[in-house]
Nucleic acid binder design. Sequence first.
RNA 1: GUGGCAGUAGCUCAGGGGUAGAGCCCCGGUUUGUGGUACCGGUUGUCGCGGGUUCAAAUCCCGUCUGCCACCCCA
Length: 418
Amino acid sequence: MSKGFQTLKGFRDFYPDECDARNYVFNVWRNVAKRYGFVEYEGPILEPTDLYKKKSGDEIVTQLFCFEDKGGRDVSMRPELTPTLARMAAARQRDFKKPLRWFSIGQFFRYEKHQKGRGREFYQFNCDILGEESVAADAELAAISIDIMRELGFTADDFRLRVSDRKAWTDFAEKKGVGEEQIPEFLQIIDKKERTKPEDFEKALATFQVTPSDIEQFIQSGSDASETLQTIVADLTARGLGEFLEVDLRIVRGLAYYTGAVFEIFDIGKGMRAVAGGGRYDQLLKLVGGVDMAACGFAMGDMVITDLVRESEKPNQLLEAGISASQSIDVFVIVADEDRRNDAVNVVQRLRDANFRTAYAMTPAKMGKQFQSAEQMGAANAVIVGTEFPQVSLKNLAERTEVSCSADELIAELQSRK
RNA sequence: GUGGCAGUAGCUCAGGGGUAGAGCCCCGGUUUGUGGUACCGGUUGUCGCGGGUUCAAAUCCCGUCUGCCACCCCA
């Protein structure tokens, strides 16, 4: 244990159960995205460090896995996908009909201290609509993120999508006389409001002509604060998803590039963690790619959502069922007579050609042992190949029923049972 | 980056200045072609690493690494 190697800090091994759990979440992401007509794309895992500096400034480097490659280039393991997406979309935007509905599932790296729900490496689902200015796109993203949660087995008792409007906040700030260059700082203060003591909050606001009660009053106005919010509420209500939605102007999101609606999905009752977040970023493609294109999107990481699934009864049952379905096999071929081993592997191959998940004991073993292996592998059926070959026995392991048939009839017999 | 807790068998952990423990897992067996149970038996450790105190350290002290949790941050 002390000898040998371990994973690097913040990195994970995925043993089969964990890998299946991960893939289960990936499949939900992928299936729901495709249900919404999104197409999948992928970008490089290594990018020029400048791509990230351009968007976020030089301080970002402390959070990057960056190094110099053998050609002396300053490169980084990607910490997020949006700059890559912006580059890709901008470079070939004329090749695609608008709006683009793109999603991606990939691995990301951030050089930071590893803790619950956060590692130095993680997977993230990214979902974006590009080239669509209308609020319908924001609503579509809200809906898809809600449907991912529903598909995972969560109900309105488990989570809420909290939506806000960054534009409403900047309008509010301007009306209160906050200068344009001060707005990022102002929004930062609002973003931290929930984590700040009231007296510190008041002190932070002192530089502006805004009082805490002005802020509170604005937050109370809810969806009256903007037409965007009203449209989103009406849209999701029409979809029958209104119960998952909550207008909450306290959501601002730390990122500077959001320009319109922003939203986060929160679990309720299990610690109020944010499991997904996103919003509209109409200026970013121009900044990164030089192309003027409206955009909105959101992302969901694998660590928080998987923790939440594990802690929630019904979602966890679905996950466990997914894992065992992924690992179980259709047929275990039992070699009852070692002289018939070659006939048995022939049967195995024919079953596999017919797309049955098939396994068998590679070394001689007593029948009891082989049945145990069949059980352990979650086999639905056992086929016994012995002295009677080409007659074989087909046994349904759950029902403990056994029939005899010829090896040639076996495939048809199994297919009829599917 | 800051702070709290932890590290003993593959896993979960108990113990505690003087032959290293339990449960689970894994492997084998309970007589020769039929299964999750039950019973019997078996393997595995420099007690995270380095140093100090001591006749003696897994145990006490210091350091270090790793993990977990919280804060900061969160694209």
